[in-house]
Simulated assay, not measured.
Amino acid sequence: MSRTSQRSTYRVLAGIAIPLYRLVAKISWRGTENFPATGGFVVAANHLTEIDPITVAYPVYKSGIMPRFLAKESLFRVPVLGRLLTHIGMVPVYRGTTRAKDSLEAAFVELNDGGAILVYPEGTVTRDPRMWPMRARTGAARLSLQGQVPVVPMAHWGDQNVLYRDPQGKRTFNLFPPKKVRVLIGEPLQPQDLMRPGQHTTDHPTADDLNYATTVIMDRITSLLSELRGEQAPSDRFDPRARKESR
């Protein structure tokens, strides 16, 4: 599908989703001036609940940028939804398979074309019962380092008052009245900001390079969330793998 067709489909879906979203959420944001005016970039955000993809995409879209998500491949096999995701250029993520590299290659193509890729580094809704960002995967860091594009950190707070998921996975909806949702967008992190001491190149980052860069990204997201919440973030970051929890 051509970019023109993708944009047309995107606008139609946004025209449906945004009014529905605004029935349950009163959103406000700060920091859209931090979105790069030219060139591709990655937006990395915390993940509170299943409705916050709209929260994250909304300020990007209203800034005149058509954002694309890295989305779980299983979503592309859902009838109707999968077709829509394909039509608007979302990128499927193939985890734990021989096709895992296809996701990154598709994302690099979008970034090279000057697009914006939205990533949840945590990979799923946070399992931290305190609702702080948990230990993350390294995909956002790899996209930035190897693609030589900035990462724009973003934090949001309030979605969980619309749809709350407890640590056991039980969901609670509270749709009315509309809940206050706030978004804070930070200054871009350039690839050189993500390089660890002694690292001389970003072409082939090692596991240590990627872990360091991911920590820098998550620290910045956590700092933004701390500002939104008006609370000090905990010194420890929740690690579902250490607790043998599934993502």
Rank of each mutant, 00 (worst) to 15 (best):
G158A: 06
V216N: 09
S74K: 11
G230C: 04
P129E: 00
V42K: 08
K72R: 10
F69I: 00
I65P: 04
R171Q: 13
P234L: 07
T201F: 08
V125C: 03
V60D: 04
T138R: 08
A71T: 08
K72Q: 06
Q160I: 12
V183T: 05
I221S: 03
H47P: 02
R165E: 15
P36R: 03
L224M: 05
I88E: 09
I221K: 00
D102P: 15
G186S: 07
V42A: 08
R99Y: 12
I54S: 05
I51V: 13
V183F: 02
G96I: 08
V119C: 09
D203C: 12
M218V: 05
I51L: 12
A17S: 11
R220G: 07
I65V: 13
F41S: 10
P121Y: 01
R83M: 15
D128N: 03
S226F: 08
R196K: 10
H200L: 14
V162Y: 04
P188C: 11
D52S: 02
R196A: 09
W157I: 06
R165S: 15
I27H: 01
P36E: 03
T9F: 13
I88N: 06
G169C: 14
Q192D: 14
T4K: 11
T49Q: 07
K244P: 03
L23Y: 07
D113C: 15
T124I: 04
M218Y: 03
P133V: 03
M1L: 14
N211E: 15
K179E: 09
G114E: 03
V151P: 00
P133F: 01
P153H: 00
T201Y: 10
V151K: 00
H87F: 14
H87K: 14
F76R: 02
G115W: 11
F173V: 10
L23W: 05
A207E: 15
A207G: 13
A207S: 15
V91H: 10
P19A: 08
G96W: 06
A242M: 00
L143G: 04
D236I: 04
D209I: 09
P121S: 01
E50R: 13
L143P: 04
T38H: 13
F41N: 11
V152M: 06
R95T: 05
P79K: 01
F69M: 00
R127A: 05
E73K: 10
F108S: 07
N46I: 01
F238P: 02
T124Q: 00
Q192N: 15
N46Q: 03
P178G: 07
D159A: 13
Y164E: 12
I27M: 04
A44R: 02
R229P: 05
K180Y: 12
R22G: 14
T32E: 15
Y61G: 04
G64N: 06
P19Y: 07
P150K: 04
D203N: 13
R196C: 07
R130F: 12
V183S: 02
L145K: 06
P79S: 01
